[in-house]
Nucleic acid binder design. Structure first.
Length: 118
RNA sequence: UCAGUCGGCCGGACGGCCGCUCCGGCAAGCACCGAAAGGUCGUUCGGAGAGGAAAGUCCGGGCUCCAUUGGCAUACGGUGCCGGAUAACAUCCGGCGGGGGCAACCCCAGGGAAAGUGCCACAGAGAACGAACCGCUUCCCCGCCCGAAAGGGAGGGACAGCAAGGGUGAAAAGGUGCGGUAAGAGCGCACCGCGGCUCCGGCAACGGAUCCGGCAUGGUAAACCCCACCGGGAGCAAGACCGAAUAGGGACGGCCACGGGGCCAGUUCGCGAAAGCGACAACGGCCGCGGGAGCAUUGUCAGGCUCGCCGUCCGGGUAGGUUGCAGGAUGUCGCGUGCAAGCGCGACACAAGAGGAAUGGCCGUCGCGUAUCGCGCGCGUCGCAAGGCGCGUGCGGUGCCCUACAGAACCCGGCUUACAGGCCGGCUGAUGCU
């Protein structure tokens, strides 16, 4: 698993499907290449001071690390957009949130694929 | 003990599991490459990893590029008591002056108002070539009262004198007292204030003393301005190096007029199912004529013009990468020196280096604080007593907070702002005890 770092990659994912949770918004995009799963984090300035933004990003990063790798689709990019609730929300609860969000994202992608085929 | 004031410091500790970034390194193990020697953006391993403000980006520097490349002046901006410290500063230290506080101590944008210009609202008579509203006063005039008279008293008026008192204001042209006068006035005197010469102390800001001047010039320069001093601009997204794909530029070589794109002409007419055949045609080509502009369509051509394609090399340059980028006006300790800021010498140490941005996540134990409950002790008070109430303190339990402000982004020196809780020291005042 790699980190997403280039601006163009973030912009590409921003066009993909998205799912909202109390502490974050999850986006993803299938890349159609042989590369590994990549995950990026976005925390905008409206979420608070630099210290608070750092904390949000670190907790989200830890969520992804704890996650079962099998829950992520291979050859895909994911972006987690942090929200202020990520500062105080219970860690295990957020872990469940992320699992649910991934499931919903998969269903949404499947629906988009079938409609694209038609 | 309480109240105050100034300065300095800390800003959770330990541990468990799982991670991140950078550095070191094969000395050892593993993985991979290699025939081997050996090697690796590898892994296990070893080491390091946010702040007192990292913040605001308000000053000052280093560094880099650009400009000027002689300096100066003008303009613009900044600084503004004196001396010192410093790479430099609007910072710091030591003084001076003014203001506040019983004091320790604190505050001050603190050059020039006899270079010039402007402004000074409201109130008030008057706000800057001094003014007279109420008022005070001598002489004179008018009538009245007392008196025998001389004269005296109260009132009114005119000419003058005055600025003490009243009133306005942030401010009214020195202040207080005595003398003086018709009433008054620096008119005179004393003290204070102000200005000036001289002398003394101090590097200086400035302070002190004698004498002189009766006092002549109100405030505002965070109004213009004057004077002195300082300042070229932009910033690490600076700058340097490397440099993919695609498009485009240049050079050389090869290939083919096959196919394709663009523009013009044919989006024409006849025959034909179609392929095709034929006809006619220019603002096009060729030919003709003319020295030329051009002319002629009665000549001729159904296509004409243009871009090529492939390979190699070169230079510019985007994304991106590397560097700048962590050994420095560096820190700690000691000694010397200076009232101090600091400076000098010596020893030791190396202490984050990210880049959609590492330094974390989840827990445990302890500690701190606070709330509450229980028990014990001390003091005060009420009560005959049992005991009640209040305050302080110790131990234990439980809950909460499990921490405030806040995250390096080229690096330093400052300033400013934010900050839970806590520690240490100096000094001042008040009170108590010896």
């Amino acid at each position: 698993m790699e980190r997403l770092r280039q601006r163009v990659d973030f912009l590409a994912v921003a066009d993909g499907a998205r799912v909202a949770a109390p502490a974050f918004t999850l986006q993803s995009r299938r890349r159609d290449d042989a590369g590994p799963v990549r995950v990026g984090f976005t925390v905008t300035k409206k979420n608070g001071t630099a210290t608070e933004r750092n904390r949000i990003r670190r907790r989200l990063r830890e969520l992804v690390r704890r996650l079962d790798v099998m829950a992520l689709r291979p050859h895909s990019d994911y972006v987690l957009i942090g929200r202020r609730a990520a500062l105080s929300r219970d860690f295990n609860t957020m872990l469940d949130d992320l699992g649910n969000a991934l499931g919903r994202l998969d269903r949404q992608n499947a629906k988009q694929d079938t409609s694209a085929r038609r």
